[in-house]
């Protein structure tokens, strides 16, 4: 499964509580769309660190890295380089 599919499914299952793929666009902002609250982002970070064996630094906890599926995919890509 691609990273994007993994992240999409995680968000759909854990925050939108559905398996309907049309419920989430990969460019949707989690905060603007009300998908995550501010503690929800901590859960996403736990998930990313577990699944992708990365460590998210405090300075990296910014919307540019974590506020959409696309942003996360790009962030993980950069971290893995």
């Amino acid at each position: 499964m691609s990273a994007e599919a993994q992240i999409r499914n995680y968000i759909l299952e854990n925050y939108l509580f559905t398996d309907d793929q049309s419920a989430l666009d990969s460019g949707d902002s989690f905060l603007d769309k009300g998908i995550l609250d501010s503690t929800g982002i901590l859960e996403v970070i736990y998930f990313l660190e577990d699944e992708f064996s990365i460590k998210v630094e405090d300075t990296e906890m910014v919307p540019e890295n974590l506020d959409s599926v696309n942003n996360i995919v790009a962030f993980i890509g950069r971290k893995s380089q």
Binding site: S38, I41, M61, D67
Partner: peptide
């Protein structure tokens, strides 16, 4: 334990 202010820039967006 899971403070809503723990995630820096996200906190600002939330509030």
């Amino acid at each position: 334990k899971h403070s809503p202010t723990a995630s820096g820039a996200f906190t600002q967006r939330f509030f």
